[in-house]
């Protein structure tokens, strides 16, 4: 965790060097910083995913929805990454569009879950 914090501080200082003069280099440096910090985070995340894969046996019927959940987390992270970069570069509208697309794709992914919920409700009522 200390490595990630130090990396963030160093990246900020390098990016601030180019803030007023050449801002495209500042953006490139911040993209590099994001990728480096994400690669540290990914090593921890794969451990969690492996653990839940083992727990799948106990989930029984609910195990079908775990890949959907993982997909939603992935879509959220990707749209957050892209929208944040767009806002860093100063283009808020573009970032908003990317986030909107992310939300729509999450809704698209969650359609089977909603239909399963409606079916179970129908089962109770009928």
């Amino acid at each position: 965790m200390v490595k990630v914090a130090l990396l963030g501080v160093v990246t900020i200082f390098c990016a601030l060097l180019f803030k007023n003069g050449k801002s495209e280099y500042a953006l490139c440096i911040s993209i590099c910083g994001c990728i480096l910090i994400f690669s540290y985070g990914i090593s921890k995340l794969s451990g969690v995913v492996r653990l839940v894969e083992q727990l799948k046996g106990y989930m029984g019927e609910g195990a079908v929805y775990f890949p959907l959940l993982l997909k939603m987390v992935g879509i959220t992270y990707l749209s957050e990454f892209a929208a944040g970069l767009c806002r860093d570069a100063g283009y808020g509208a573009l970032g908003g569009q990317v986030e909107l697309a992310g939300k729509l794709s999450i809704m698209a992914v969650s359609i089977p879950v909603l239909s399963a919920l409606l079916e179970t409700i129908e089962g109770f009522l009928a």
């Binding site: 990396l7 160093v10 990246t11 390098c14 060097l17 180019f18 050449k22 280099y25 490139c28 440096i29 590099c32 910083g33 990728i35 480096l36 690669s39």
Partner: peptide, 16 residues
Amino acid sequence: MTIQLIFKIAAVGILV
């Protein structure tokens, strides 16, 4: 893929 990449980019930026 370590911190060297960020320093290389900073160096190129200063040079340019």
